[in-house]
Simulated scan of single mutants.
Amino acid sequence: MTPWEGMRLTSAQVDPYRREWEAANRRALDGEGPLLGVLGDSAAQGIGAPTPFEGWVGQLQRRLEGIDGHRWRVLNLSVSGARAHTVMDEQLPRLWRVGQPVDLVVCAVGGNDMYRSTRRQVHDRFTRLLRALPAPGTWHGDQRTIVTTLPQGLGRRRAGIANDLVRTLGPQRGLEVADLWATTGPPWRGKYAEDMFHPNALGYGHWVDAILGTIRPDRRSLGGDLPVVGTR
């Protein structure tokens, strides 16, 4: 299969995956249990995985449930094609309007900012986003916010600008950093979707390893024992 044919396959996932997450979001808001709020782009929609729930968001939900035994609800506000400024301008306002406490916020965005954007735009967008994300304790004392670096495979210079901001400005605001760049290096054969851009389900599993890796072994969090990162 050529990358062009692969792009057609993953592009065909966009609308059905969006509809499935919209239905899942409605069920989540009507349910009970800790709430995970997700901000991001097509990766958070699960594009490239066999189903929307086998992307990193669905895998993270299941692994959180395995950690603390609670049934986690997911409010996935991501949109395919989103950039850092659209997360801030469109997705964050929706999160503030939820009307329920959010226990964990995870923001993973930036792939689309690497194209048709100047370095200055990347710097300004990520600075604004990192200053706008909910600080820990926004809804209650145990609430946390995790922001990811960009994975490898994107424009190194622009990704470096974004990642440097995530690693410096994020912790200054109390945000926890999941370093996708450090966990997505080669070899990555067998971990890409057919378009050779999005991860497949196996590749998304490595994203979850990085996100859960922000939970340090010297603390308890999320209502249960901490995982040993790297075990599945």
Rank of each mutant, 00 (worst) to 15 (best):
R27H: 14
G40H: 04
A24E: 14
G55D: 02
V14E: 11
G37H: 02
A24H: 15
R26F: 07
V38Y: 01
Y17M: 05
E32A: 14
A43T: 13
G55V: 05
L39P: 10
A43M: 11
A12I: 04
L39D: 06
L39G: 02
S42K: 10
P16M: 01
I47R: 01
R19A: 14
R19K: 11
G55E: 04
L36S: 03
P50H: 10
E54K: 13
A49F: 00
V14M: 04
F53W: 10
V38E: 02
D15Y: 05
A24P: 08
E20R: 11
A28K: 13
I47N: 06
Y17P: 08
G31Q: 13
G55T: 03
N25S: 12
E32C: 05
G40S: 07
E54M: 12
L36F: 00
G31R: 13
L36W: 00
E20I: 01
D30R: 15
P52G: 06
P52V: 00
Q45S: 03
D15T: 08
E22V: 09
R18P: 05
G33Y: 14
R18G: 06
E54D: 12
G55M: 01
P16D: 07
N25Q: 07
Q13P: 15
E22A: 11
T51D: 08
R18I: 00
L36H: 06
T51S: 11
E20P: 09
G46K: 00
A49R: 01
D15C: 00
L35R: 04
P50L: 09
T51Q: 05
Q45Y: 01
L35N: 08
A44N: 06
P34F: 11
E54V: 09
A12G: 12
P34Y: 09
L29G: 12
A43W: 10
Y17A: 03
D41H: 11
D30M: 13
A24R: 15
G31M: 14
W21S: 07
Y17S: 02
Q13C: 04
P52F: 01
A44E: 06
